[in-house]
Simulated assay, not measured.
Amino acid sequence: MMNPAWLRSFTTLAAEGTFTRAAETLELTQAAVSQHIRQLEAQLGPLLIRRPRGVELTPAGHALLAYGEEVARAERCLASRLSNADALDGVVSIITPGSVGLSTYPKLLDIQRETPGLVVRHRFAPEEDVLQAVLDNRFDIGIVSRRPDDERLAIERFCEEALELVIPADAEVSDWEDLLRLGFIDHPDGQSMATRLLARRFPGKRLGEVPVTGFTNQIALILEPVARGLGFSVLPRHARRAFARQEAIRVLDADRAIVETLWLIHRAEWELPRRARHVVDELHVRLAKD
């Protein structure tokens, strides 16, 4: 790694043109600046042509100057990002299961519109991918339905969601055998959600007994095959409400929804930036109104 003090002396000398002016700018002695340049030339070869009225850069000197300018830009960028930690403007990245995103993403867009300079980056993903993306520091915030047990994560209760068993509007379902005849429409989080709901609704029965009659990873289309009579599915209430053709579907035992907690996660080693905390707090408020 290049010695930062030597590099600073070189770029200053290139800008000022003489050792005298460079030393004054750096508040060093000329001997110190000369020593820095000699150290660099010992590593990189001749960098300067010393002339009576100033210095001229060799090709190697021009290459080092370009490198020094890149380092300076990177330092300015880092300083800007660090100083921006308490600002509301900047990027906030959030990753959620698709069913959660259906309710949160429109609210995220509202928050962005109301907060000048804020940029929201959102991604839909299965829960396992949400967890890994936050652990890998690829996203600031994640939302999951199962509370993780990982000391690297800060975990807080976010909100509650109701899981619903959704069937075709004209289907007659009164027992487990009727569900077996219908079949299951799966989705990226379908196995997990259906297992949790069915275990409570039909104790002793297993989702593995039910034939899978469809699968889609397009969250907005999960209920389309249900609406066409091809099977049942299990989704959060807000995902079901987002489906356009409500007349073609029905919630089985609508008064017996299974309510679960959603958890917000982020890396525990550092606090969320102010803009990310602002987004989380605003989401809390807006989801509470639903």
Results as ranks from 00 to 15, higher is better:
residue 5 A to Q: 09
residue 5 A to L: 03
residue 7 L to N: 01
residue 18 T to F: 10
residue 28 L to P: 03
residue 40 L to P: 13
residue 43 Q to P: 00
residue 46 P to M: 02
residue 52 P to T: 01
residue 52 P to R: 04
residue 55 V to P: 06
residue 57 L to R: 13
residue 64 L to R: 03
residue 66 A to E: 12
residue 69 E to K: 11
residue 69 E to A: 12
residue 77 C to Q: 11
residue 80 S to E: 10
residue 87 A to G: 11
residue 92 V to N: 12
residue 95 I to H: 05
residue 96 T to Y: 01
residue 105 Y to P: 01
residue 107 K to T: 13
residue 109 L to E: 07
residue 116 P to Q: 02
residue 116 P to K: 03
residue 116 P to N: 02
residue 122 H to F: 09
residue 122 H to Y: 11
residue 126 P to I: 09
residue 139 F to T: 14
residue 140 D to W: 02
residue 143 I to C: 13
residue 150 D to K: 09
residue 156 E to T: 14
residue 162 A to F: 06
residue 170 D to L: 15
residue 177 E to L: 14
residue 179 L to W: 05
residue 181 R to I: 05
residue 186 D to V: 12
residue 191 Q to L: 04
residue 197 L to V: 13
residue 200 R to M: 03
residue 200 R to A: 07
residue 200 R to H: 02
residue 201 R to Q: 05
residue 201 R to H: 00
residue 203 P to H: 02
residue 217 N to S: 08
residue 229 G to I: 10
residue 231 G to N: 13
residue 236 P to R: 07
residue 244 A to D: 06
residue 244 A to W: 10
residue 245 R to Q: 10
residue 245 R to P: 07
residue 249 I to E: 03
residue 256 R to D: 14
residue 265 I to K: 09
residue 268 A to Y: 08
residue 269 E to S: 11
residue 279 V to M: 00
residue 279 V to N: 05
